[in-house]
Design a protein around this nucleic acid. Sequence first.
DNA 1: CGGGATCCCTGCCGATACTG
DNA 2: CAGTATCGGCAGGGATCCCG
Lengths: 132, 132
Amino acid sequence: MSHLEEAVRAVAAGHGRKDIGEICPIRDVLDRIGDKWSILVLMTLAARPYRFGELRRAIADISQRMLTQTLRDLQRDGLISRHVFPTNPPSVEYRLTKLGASLLKPMAELVRWADANHGAINKARAQFDRAS
Amino acid sequence: MSHLEEAVRAVAAGHGRKDIGEICPIRDVLDRIGDKWSILVLMTLAARPYRFGELRRAIADISQRMLTQTLRDLQRDGLISRHVFPTNPPSVEYRLTKLGASLLKPMAELVRWADANHGAINKARAQFDRAS
DNA sequence: CGGGATCCCTGCCGATACTG
DNA sequence: CAGTATCGGCAGGGATCCCG
């Protein structure tokens, strides 16, 4: 919890900067966690390597534009690796890096929490909405 | 990890629905985690209850519009509670609920991960950017 | 003090069409 | 197959003004 307190105090101090990312690497990570598709891609790749089209079919709702962009961002952050096989037609495979795999552990904690508590959340929402 | 696999397979199956939230409560939670201010507010409230103006000063970069909205959403989800004291001028206090406090634990894991690995991420980014 | 209402602009993201 | 390029809608969120 001391990391939290640290971050909090850094923010509380104002710190003279505009970009929270500068004082708090957490934002950086959360921006990736928070975006619409990153997690889904990482979770899918947790099972095994996938090719582009495979991923597209596996996630289904994602547009190819977003899949491309998400993959590039994840690769840029070193969370997945990209392997091109110069076949014809070309074939590209994506897989988790060690870094990416290590992120899955804390993420699984969050998933477990969500799974265990989304009932309570929905109840709270219903009650809140009833009161207004 | 079985929850992950489950979610993955549910998504992979297509499932015939458009809204991921319906098949995967994770999205619900992640949307809140991912938004710009929720976590910062929760982390701040982890230390002690805060009044509205106090929070505003503590987080500093947040606009009062977003603070209001973030607090309402968090309250709606049952993560924080709101206590009005009919003094003059009025005084409103926010504090974590048990549910909110329980979320802080898995979040701390993520924070720890981010803290431990943002160096590797930045290195990966720099290398990726150099290669293009 | 603790908000609500309004204006406005930026960036996310989907749809579509094209390329090696 | 595995992308890139372009257009456009619309929601997130900042700035500002107002109110009890």
